[in-house]
Amino acid sequence: MHIRETREPDAGLVARLKAGDPDAYREAVRRYTPGMLAVARYYTDHSSAEDIVQDCWAKVVTAIQGFEGRSGLSTWLHRIVANRAKNTLRHRQRELTTDFSEALDPDLASRFKPNGRWAVPPRMTTSESAEALLENGALSDCLDKHLSRLPEAQRSALMLYEAHQRHSDEVCNILDVSASNLRVLLHRARQKIFLMVEHFQESGEC
Protein backbone atom coordinates (compact mmCIF):
# COMPACT_ATOMS: atom_id res chain seq x y z
CA MET A 1 0.00 0.00 0.00
CA HIS A 2 1.30 3.44 -0.84
CA ILE A 3 1.25 6.53 1.32
CA ARG A 4 -1.11 9.30 0.27
CA GLU A 5 0.14 12.87 0.30
CA THR A 6 -1.07 14.42 3.52
CA ARG A 7 0.72 17.72 3.73
CA GLU A 8 2.34 20.10 1.33
CA PRO A 9 6.03 19.46 0.89
CA ASP A 10 6.85 23.15 0.80
CA ALA A 11 5.09 25.69 3.00
CA GLY A 12 7.77 28.23 2.05
CA LEU A 13 6.49 28.11 -1.52
CA VAL A 14 3.22 29.75 -0.44
CA ALA A 15 5.08 32.67 1.12
CA ARG A 16 7.08 33.15 -2.07
CA LEU A 17 3.91 33.00 -4.18
CA LYS A 18 2.32 35.64 -1.97
CA ALA A 19 5.38 37.82 -2.49
CA GLY A 20 4.92 37.50 -6.26
CA ASP A 21 8.19 35.64 -6.88
CA PRO A 22 8.17 34.53 -10.57
CA ASP A 23 10.47 31.55 -9.80
CA ALA A 24 8.00 30.35 -7.18
CA TYR A 25 5.27 30.47 -9.82
CA ARG A 26 7.40 28.51 -12.29
CA GLU A 27 7.95 25.87 -9.63
CA ALA A 28 4.28 25.76 -8.60
CA VAL A 29 3.09 25.57 -12.21
CA ARG A 30 5.25 22.51 -12.81
CA ARG A 31 4.30 20.84 -9.57
CA TYR A 32 0.54 21.41 -9.55
CA THR A 33 -0.58 21.78 -13.19
CA PRO A 34 -0.87 18.01 -13.86
CA GLY A 35 -3.32 17.58 -10.98
CA MET A 36 -5.27 20.70 -11.97
CA LEU A 37 -5.59 19.39 -15.53
CA ALA A 38 -6.87 16.07 -14.18
CA VAL A 39 -9.59 17.91 -12.25
CA ALA A 40 -10.58 20.01 -15.28
CA ARG A 41 -10.65 16.95 -17.51
CA TYR A 42 -13.40 15.51 -15.34
CA TYR A 43 -15.67 18.25 -16.63
CA THR A 44 -14.49 18.91 -20.16
CA ASP A 45 -12.28 18.02 -23.12
CA HIS A 46 -8.51 18.43 -23.23
CA SER A 47 -8.32 21.83 -24.90
CA SER A 48 -11.02 23.46 -22.72
CA ALA A 49 -9.33 21.95 -19.66
CA GLU A 50 -6.07 23.67 -20.63
CA ASP A 51 -7.92 26.99 -21.02
CA ILE A 52 -9.59 26.61 -17.64
CA VAL A 53 -6.31 25.82 -15.88
CA GLN A 54 -4.65 28.78 -17.61
CA ASP A 55 -7.40 31.13 -16.38
CA CYS A 56 -7.08 29.71 -12.89
CA TRP A 57 -3.34 30.34 -12.69
CA ALA A 58 -3.88 33.96 -13.71
CA LYS A 59 -6.48 34.27 -10.90
CA VAL A 60 -4.19 32.60 -8.36
CA VAL A 61 -1.80 35.57 -8.65
CA THR A 62 -4.28 37.73 -6.68
CA ALA A 63 -6.30 35.02 -4.91
CA ILE A 64 -3.18 33.59 -3.21
CA GLN A 65 -3.27 36.54 -0.77
CA GLY A 66 -6.44 35.02 0.70
CA PHE A 67 -4.96 31.55 1.05
CA GLU A 68 -4.74 30.80 4.77
CA GLY A 69 -3.32 27.29 4.62
CA ARG A 70 -6.35 25.59 6.19
CA SER A 71 -6.16 23.08 3.36
CA GLY A 72 -3.07 22.11 1.39
CA LEU A 73 -2.08 24.28 -1.55
CA SER A 74 -2.90 21.56 -4.08
CA THR A 75 -6.36 21.01 -2.56
CA TRP A 76 -6.99 24.73 -2.75
CA LEU A 77 -5.86 24.87 -6.38
CA HIS A 78 -7.98 21.83 -7.27
CA ARG A 79 -11.07 23.47 -5.76
CA ILE A 80 -10.47 26.66 -7.77
CA VAL A 81 -10.28 24.60 -10.95
CA ALA A 82 -13.36 22.52 -10.08
CA ASN A 83 -15.46 25.62 -9.30
CA ARG A 84 -14.32 27.38 -12.44
CA ALA A 85 -15.03 24.31 -14.58
CA LYS A 86 -18.48 23.87 -13.03
CA ASN A 87 -19.36 27.53 -13.67
CA THR A 88 -18.07 27.48 -17.22
CA LEU A 89 -19.97 24.34 -18.06
CA ARG A 90 -23.18 25.01 -16.17
CA HIS A 91 -25.16 25.06 -19.39
CA ARG A 92 -23.61 21.95 -20.80
CA GLN A 93 -24.78 18.48 -19.96
CA ARG A 94 -21.89 16.53 -18.51
CA GLU A 95 -21.42 13.16 -20.07
CA LEU A 96 -21.28 10.44 -17.46
CA THR A 97 -20.74 7.11 -19.11
CA THR A 98 -20.06 4.99 -16.05
CA ASP A 99 -22.85 2.75 -14.81
CA PHE A 100 -22.38 2.96 -11.04
CA SER A 101 -24.49 -0.13 -10.41
CA GLU A 102 -21.91 -2.33 -12.12
CA ALA A 103 -18.60 -2.59 -10.30
CA LEU A 104 -17.33 -5.28 -12.70
CA ASP A 105 -16.28 -4.33 -16.21
CA PRO A 106 -18.53 -6.21 -18.68
CA ASP A 107 -15.44 -7.71 -20.37
CA LEU A 108 -14.30 -9.12 -17.04
CA ALA A 109 -17.79 -10.11 -15.85
CA SER A 110 -18.15 -12.40 -18.87
CA ARG A 111 -15.14 -14.42 -17.71
CA PHE A 112 -16.95 -16.07 -14.80
CA LYS A 113 -19.08 -19.21 -14.79
CA PRO A 114 -22.65 -18.99 -13.49
CA ASN A 115 -21.43 -20.51 -10.20
CA GLY A 116 -19.11 -17.52 -9.71
CA ARG A 117 -15.81 -19.26 -10.40
CA TRP A 118 -13.38 -18.20 -13.12
CA ALA A 119 -14.19 -19.58 -16.58
CA VAL A 120 -11.34 -17.64 -18.23
CA PRO A 121 -8.81 -16.97 -15.45
CA PRO A 122 -6.18 -14.20 -15.61
CA ARG A 123 -3.44 -15.17 -18.02
CA MET A 124 -0.70 -12.81 -16.92
CA THR A 125 2.18 -14.23 -15.01
CA THR A 126 4.43 -11.18 -14.88
CA SER A 127 6.39 -10.40 -11.77
CA GLU A 128 8.08 -7.38 -13.33
CA SER A 129 7.72 -4.04 -11.59
CA ALA A 130 5.61 -1.29 -13.14
CA GLU A 131 8.76 0.66 -13.97
CA ALA A 132 10.30 -2.35 -15.74
CA LEU A 133 7.11 -2.92 -17.73
CA LEU A 134 7.04 0.72 -18.82
CA GLU A 135 10.51 0.42 -20.31
CA ASN A 136 8.67 -1.31 -23.12
CA GLY A 137 7.82 1.75 -25.23
CA ALA A 138 5.00 -0.01 -27.06
CA LEU A 139 3.30 -0.90 -23.78
CA SER A 140 3.72 2.66 -22.57
CA ASP A 141 2.10 3.98 -25.79
CA CYS A 142 -0.69 1.46 -25.45
CA LEU A 143 -1.32 2.58 -21.87
CA ASP A 144 -1.50 6.17 -23.09
CA LYS A 145 -4.07 5.23 -25.66
CA HIS A 146 -6.23 3.33 -23.21
CA LEU A 147 -6.04 5.97 -20.49
CA SER A 148 -7.16 8.61 -22.99
CA ARG A 149 -10.08 6.39 -24.03
CA LEU A 150 -11.43 5.96 -20.51
CA PRO A 151 -14.64 7.85 -19.76
CA GLU A 152 -13.60 11.24 -18.34
CA ALA A 153 -15.06 10.47 -14.92
CA GLN A 154 -12.97 7.31 -14.56
CA ARG A 155 -9.91 8.99 -15.95
CA SER A 156 -9.99 11.98 -13.60
CA ALA A 157 -10.76 9.89 -10.54
CA LEU A 158 -7.89 7.62 -11.49
CA MET A 159 -5.44 10.45 -12.13
CA LEU A 160 -6.22 12.25 -8.88
CA TYR A 161 -6.18 9.11 -6.77
CA GLU A 162 -3.34 7.13 -8.34
CA ALA A 163 -1.12 9.64 -10.06
CA HIS A 164 -1.52 12.58 -7.70
CA GLN A 165 -2.03 10.50 -4.57
CA ARG A 166 -5.02 12.43 -3.28
CA HIS A 167 -7.17 11.09 -0.43
CA SER A 168 -10.54 9.55 -1.32
CA ASP A 169 -12.53 12.19 0.55
CA GLU A 170 -10.66 14.95 -1.25
CA VAL A 171 -11.27 13.38 -4.67
CA CYS A 172 -14.98 12.98 -3.81
CA ASN A 173 -15.15 16.60 -2.73
CA ILE A 174 -13.42 17.94 -5.83
CA LEU A 175 -15.25 15.78 -8.36
CA ASP A 176 -18.62 15.89 -6.59
CA VAL A 177 -19.06 12.12 -6.43
CA SER A 178 -20.11 9.95 -3.51
CA ALA A 179 -17.54 7.72 -1.81
CA SER A 180 -19.20 4.57 -3.18
CA ASN A 181 -19.28 5.96 -6.74
CA LEU A 182 -15.60 6.86 -6.48
CA ARG A 183 -14.86 3.24 -5.51
CA VAL A 184 -16.68 2.09 -8.67
CA LEU A 185 -14.85 4.63 -10.87
CA LEU A 186 -11.46 3.50 -9.56
CA HIS A 187 -12.22 -0.20 -9.80
CA ARG A 188 -13.64 0.06 -13.32
CA ALA A 189 -10.60 2.00 -14.53
CA ARG A 190 -8.11 -0.47 -12.98
CA GLN A 191 -9.94 -3.41 -14.57
CA LYS A 192 -9.70 -1.73 -17.97
CA ILE A 193 -5.95 -1.33 -17.55
CA PHE A 194 -5.65 -4.93 -16.29
CA LEU A 195 -7.46 -6.19 -19.42
CA MET A 196 -5.29 -3.99 -21.63
CA VAL A 197 -1.99 -5.22 -20.16
CA GLU A 198 -3.17 -8.84 -20.31
CA HIS A 199 -4.09 -8.49 -23.98
CA PHE A 200 -0.81 -6.72 -24.73
CA GLN A 201 1.31 -9.36 -23.03
CA GLU A 202 -0.50 -12.17 -24.82
CA SER A 203 -0.60 -10.73 -28.31
CA GLY A 204 2.11 -8.07 -28.30
CA GLU A 205 -0.56 -5.78 -29.75
CA CYS A 206 -2.39 -2.86 -28.28
Partner: peptide, 22 residues
Protein backbone atom coordinates in the same frame (compact mmCIF):
# COMPACT_ATOMS: atom_id res chain seq x y z
CA UNK B 1 -4.17 -14.47 -6.31
CA UNK B 2 -3.08 -13.85 -9.88
CA UNK B 3 -5.97 -11.42 -10.45
CA UNK B 4 -5.29 -9.41 -7.28
CA UNK B 5 -1.56 -9.29 -8.06
CA UNK B 6 -2.20 -8.08 -11.58
CA UNK B 7 -4.77 -5.52 -10.49
CA UNK B 8 -2.26 -4.17 -7.96
CA UNK B 9 0.29 -4.02 -10.75
CA UNK B 10 -2.20 -2.13 -12.97
CA UNK B 11 -2.59 0.51 -10.28
CA UNK B 12 1.21 0.79 -9.94
CA UNK B 13 1.53 1.02 -13.71
CA UNK B 14 -0.92 3.91 -13.83
CA UNK B 15 0.97 5.68 -11.04
CA UNK B 16 4.35 5.21 -12.72
CA UNK B 17 3.06 6.18 -16.14
CA UNK B 18 1.13 9.25 -15.04
CA UNK B 19 4.02 11.00 -13.37
CA UNK B 20 4.80 12.53 -16.75
CA UNK B 21 4.75 16.30 -17.21
CA UNK B 22 2.38 18.27 -19.45
Amino acid sequence: RSFIGNLRNSAALIRAHSSQTP
